[in-house]
Design a protein around this nucleic acid. Structure first.
Length: 260
DNA sequence: AGCGATGTTCGCCG
DNA sequence: TCGGCGAACATCGC
């Protein structure tokens, strides 16, 4: 279930379970999840320890003896740390077995995740032309990233090359909070709207992290719990509208989020 | 039993 | 070369 808040939660989980333990063995249950040749992947990591985790957008970079394990979770990724002998999690794709008899499972139900190795995560970010991390970017970086873009706000927020970390669900919430219609062209936003958008990106993502990405616990004053057709806006009670964009479904309140 | 899904990438077009 | 757009990808649960 990973957008930025979920991936940040995975980072914390990884840090609290899997750092500084020797990797005894690695089992690849499905090589399609690897962006790199299987033997290289295994030989790079076996016998080493994970030292630290950096997050950029929806990506995790796990430092391991001057190399980095790159983790992306797609739409249905997860991590689970468990004791040897306990049941292997369903849809495990890669198992990192530590010498302490515990195993970290990288789970990907729908195979949309990716594991890779890079020797420099900043180079990896540049090569893939990822935008600034949505949680830590400055207002200047945010503006710079939007420069010369003409697409609509919803698409811009979800484009990882513009801003890294926001997906379909959180972009709905950010636009709802900012009271911007999702189809508004990004280049016609007023300065005050850009400022509010920037502030709300941070606030919504921080809220998500505080809630550990557990959508079921989100306040009913947000639009997230109402992303269902025929639900009413929690502010003005107008029926929420569903629309299609980029082959995905977005939701907005036609009253609170008027076109500019 | 068909559809939809918290994501990314590729190919086409201007 | 770049940006925008739509289709494709894999697979499971509702």
């Amino acid at each position: 279930m990973p957008e930025l808040p979920e991936v940040e939660t995975f980072k914390q989980y990884f840090e609290s379970t899997s750092l500084n333990k020797q990797i005894k063995n690695i089992k690849i249950k499905d090589t399609r999840i690897l962006s790199i040749e299987e033997n290289i992947f295994i030989n790079t990591l076996r016998g080493k320890k994970f030292n630290s985790v950096t997050r950029h957008g929806k990506y995790l970079f796990v430092e391991c003896n001057s190399f980095f394990l790159v983790m992306h979770f797609g739409m249905t990724g997860d991590l689970e740390y468990y004791r040897r002998g306990e049941e292997e999690p369903k849809y495990s794709k890669v198992l990192f077995e530590f010498t302490n008899n515990h195993i970290l499972s990288y789970i990907s139900t729908r195979m949309f995740g990716k594991l890779d190795i890079t020797d420099d995560y900043k180079k990896y970010i540049n090569k893939n032309r990822l935008g600034p991390d949505a949680l830590t970017m400055s207002y200047e970086e945010f503006l710079m990233s939007l420069k010369r873009r003409t697409t609509n706000v919803k698409t811009a927020l979800m484009n990882q090359r513009i801003i890294c970390g926001i997906g379909n669900i959180y972009s709905d919430e950010i636009l709802f909070r900012t009271q911007i219609n999702p189809l508004t062209k990004i280049n016609i936003l007023q300065e005050y709207q850009l400022k509010e958008l920037f502030t709300n990106i941070k606030e919504i993502l921080k809220y998500g992290i505080r809630k550990k990405g557990n959508l079921a616990t989100y306040s009913s004053k947000l639009i997230i719990p109402h992303r269902i057709e025929e639900e009413n806006c929690p502010i003005c009670h107008t029926p929420i509208k569903r629309y299609e964009i980029l082959g995905r479904h977005g939701f907005f309140c036609p009253t609170c989020q008027k076109e500019n």
